[in-house]
Amino acid sequence: MGMDRRNFLKAASGGTLAASCVPSVQARETRTMPEGAVGLLYDGTLCIGCRACMAACKAENDLPPEFNEIEGSAYWDAPLDLSGRTINIIKAYVGGDSDRKDTLDGYAFTKLSCFHCVDASCVSCCPVAAMTKDPVTGIVSHSKEACIGCRYCVAACPFGVPRFTYDETFPHIAKCQLCRHRMAQGKFAACAEVCPTGATIYGPVKELKKEIARRRALAPGTETEFPRGHIGSGDTHIAPIANYVDHVWGEKEIGGTQVLHLSAVPFDRLDKKPLPDVAPANVSESLQGRIYHGMIAPLAFLGALVFAAKRSAKALGEQGEAGGTDAGDDRKGE
């Protein structure tokens, strides 16, 4: 119980805590987009709300229809949000009249499905590696078999994408996996394949970004060809360029995503609130990495603790008869 031990302890515990607080001492490297990353481009101004993508998604992923209580939609698939049974949804912003599309006083469509983040929170937070990011395609996929159902991914995802089937006895997480099961058959994402207007197209993220740049460079109203299906499919149609907002959703959000959105209505009206450029997964892993780097700090701390415990026990033992350490050892004390 000398001062030197106490100081040592203070230094040990203080050091551990300080290590956790000093910002960016040994921050983890920033993740970058894989070379062969594939993704989707959703251009809300081309979307007509036919929901063919939702139907195709359900058919390709063996998902059941979902009913809701809104009048007139109790008999067919009409989900109100993503869920354990809906992993892709077209939603509508309604700000006014039906004859003005893509204006704040009219209406606009938006899509919600997995964004396949470059530095995904769900991948970082999953305790059992059920969420994984493919190193080649960058597709974030989920393994039901590994999942323990803790729903950390549901809570952590800044886009609110992973969902859970709370009403099932043996529940599971559901999210878009970019139809990776179809890729083996040489096909691509079903939602892009069926989209009649090319509002959703599939392709390498690099190509998608070129297409975005091309569209944004054209003056609103210019008639131009829009690809359908996937980039380079040859299937195109001509339509005028919309008056895009100066923001590509997913370009920078939480370190970038592989699904990119264009819109003529500000994204915050489409329930896509501003997000920082830094991935929370990076912040969290850097913090944990600093505290537990190589388990050096915890082991040093443990050594100090055991040392102190031994000394204290001796001190306790001096009052008692033996070198007991436990709470009960000094029952004969005094």
């Binding site: 007509i48 109100l80 149609h237 339509a239």
Partner: peptide
């Protein structure tokens, strides 16, 4: 051959709003 606008859905009565 130009694509039609969809009038059925407007104002979209059974579309989910961005935040229900």
């Amino acid at each position: 051959h130009a694509l039609a606008e969809l009038k059925t859905v407007t104002p979209p009565i059974f579309f989910a709003r961005p935040a229900e």
